[in-house]
Design a protein around this nucleic acid. Structure first.
Lengths: 206, 206
DNA sequence: AATAAATTTGACTCAAGGTTCAAATTTTAT
DNA sequence: ATAAAATTTGAACCTTGAGTCAAATTTATT
């Protein structure tokens, strides 16, 4: 087993380190989501991990880096969803699938969608906003696809996207304070409302 | 004109003071909305008003009070909208009117809907959250009204409301960085999407 | 013009919290 | 068992920004 340890050891180390670093960020991100970045101190973060403030600096350069990585983690997950095929029979269904996965991600995986971009340095801000813009653009493309194949009503795609992306971001404010709701139920409900709104009847327009 | 000044003077004073105080809060609220509460210093607020930090304390007790009043101002405007009759011919139309007014308020009046409740003292937090809950409850009632009169599809009214209230809060993140959009256009678009979602065709469900 | 009241300011205090670092502790390798 | 590397800590430092206050300035009153 010596052979295996000497070979696996350094690999394990890096993995352990990466895992712990990830734990730090996930835990912090969750706190940021609930209480906000500036209302969460490094001591808070350390305590919930059973560590000391100073120990955090073994895993991250500074507090801002945690915020940066938190944002990144969420966006990477969302990009992952956008990459996966899961194609329906038209643009609308594709969009529904993506949106459902977004909601499930945010209600079940522990990944947090944050909004505080202004607490980042100018540089990081640029990276994060670009990332977000990229995701938005891809979602907008899905909508435009739906326009073309006739599955989605024609209108300013940008506005259409902003409207329902708001529902995702607003989740932070109320989800899990309403513990009785299952993530999947929310996802299904939201998809339905994304598609058909709230009207009961069939008439288009006035 | 002496007679008028002696009579009007004390009244004018209070009015001027109140007006200036209001200006402080509105200006600060706008900055809070764009940059966030903690990324806006008292010096920042003072500077945009052509004042000194110390002068602000002539108008408010402390920074938190500004945040509190900012929240309050938005919620009062929203309650105002909810109070006004403007009744349509069913629950859905009532809701549409309210929602349209909400969007117009937030895109045109300078009133800002903030989300940072955690930076308030426990006491103020209670007041603000109660206020918000009250507004939500009234909107939920409108939805339930629509359920009863058959104008709104039956589903968990809470979830229905959370979905489209998200669109309001998300406005902060993108509106006025997209300067070319008129507030009324957004309001109309959003009402349409609130009602009918984005699907192009008439079929209900699958 | 003189006085009083209202408003604003500069200079200061103070606390909170992010960051550093040398030393202590724990874990791994030989 | 011992040395080396990795991890954690306590005790500081340091910056930022909120809040205070007596004095200065501006505005209103007689």
């Amino acid at each position: 087993m010596n052979a295996s340890t000497t070979i696996k050891a350094p690999f394990d180390r890096d993995k352990q380190f990466a895992a712990k670093r990830r734990a730090v960020i996930l835990s912090a991100a969750s706190a940021f989501r609930r209480r906000g970045y500036h209302n969460t101190s490094m001591v808070d973060i350390a305590k919930t991990l059973g560590l000391t403030k100073a120990a955090l600096y073994y895993y991250v350069r500074n507090k801002e880096e945690i915020l940066f990585e938190s944002h990144l983690m969420a966006y990477e997950s969302m990009e992952e969803i956008l990459k996966s095929p899961r194609a329906g029979k038209n643009g609308l269904e594709d969009l529904e699938n993506v949106f459902r996965d977004f909601v499930s991600l945010l209600t079940q995986s522990g990944v947090s969608l944050l909004t505080d971009v202004d607490s980042l340095s100018e540089k990081s801000q640029g990276v994060i906003l670009a990332r977000r813009a990229n995701i938005e653009k891809r979602v907008i493309r899905l909508v435009e696809l739906g326009h073309k194949d006739g599955s989605i009503r024609r209108a300013d795609p940008r506005l259409q996207v902003f409207f329902f992306m708001g529902a995702l971001n607003w989740l932070n404010a109320w989800f899990d304070s309403e513990g009785r709701l299952k993530g999947d139920d929310i996802a299904n409900h939201f998809v339905e409302q994304l598609r058909s709104g709230i009207t009961a009847d069939y008439r288009r327009d006035e």
